[in-house]
């Protein structure tokens, strides 16, 4: 009887440990880019890419129902890929651009050539503004509501699927 108890105890401990470790291994151990979702956008001040005297503070409270923030750079190939989608989105929503570690001449040449979808473009020369809002890299896109909450975030270039999703959110 005592032996049976010992064996069943050993078996149950082994099985429980196996289940815990199995599910822990299967769990998504990668970082979660959506940690900022439904949280207030941290306060940032953008300095215009073209005119250093022009400033724009974000978040904007009770101004627009929704607005979009896009982190981009002229040297970033995926940013070039997603640019036509931003051009389509600019008719639906105000887009605030954060120009990440870029040269002013290259950035303006990029916008002159491919079109400017941004209502305001701020410069992030040292990458600190992007870190302030919890960015991982570029391109990255946020949808912010009138209360200043980040209601949608996408890491990587925008595609048709994400375009439709954003259009649905801001409808």
């Amino acid at each position: 009887m005592k032996k049976l108890f010992k064996i069943s105890l050993l078996v149950s401990v082994t099985v429980i440990s196996f289940v815990i470790f199995y599910y822990s291994l299967k769990a998504n151990n990668k970082n979660n880019p959506n940690i900022m979702l439904n949280k207030p956008l941290p306060a940032i001040e953008l300095t215009s890419l073209v005119n250093a005297h022009l400033k724009q503070e974000l978040p904007l409270i009770n101004r627009d129902k929704y607005y979009l923030i896009n982190i981009w750079s002229s040297w970033c190939v995926p940013c070039r890929e997603e640019h036509p989608i931003l051009m389509k989105l600019k008719d639906k929503i105000k887009i605030y651009g954060i120009n990440y570690k870029d040269k002013k001449t290259n950035a303006t040449a990029f916008l002159n050539k491919l079109g400017n979808p941004f209502y305001f473009t701020g410069s992030d020369k040292d990458g600190s503004i992007s870190i302030e809002i919890g960015a991982y890299g570029i391109p990255e896109t946020y949808v912010v509501n009138s209360q200043g909450l980040i209601i949608f975030k996408h890491v990587g270039p925008l595609n048709k699927k994400i375009y439709l999703r954003i259009s649905e959110i801001i409808k």
Binding site: N31, G127, S128, I131, Y136
Partner: peptide
């Protein structure tokens, strides 16, 4: 943890993200 090269610490990494984050921490 360097979020771009996840196996490395910020101290070991020289990625753009790590360099920016180090500057922010220093500040």
């Amino acid at each position: 943890r360097c979020l771009v090269c996840q196996g490395q610490s910020l101290n070991d990494s020289n990625s753009d993200f790590a360099i920016d984050l180090k500057k922010v921490i220093k500040k």
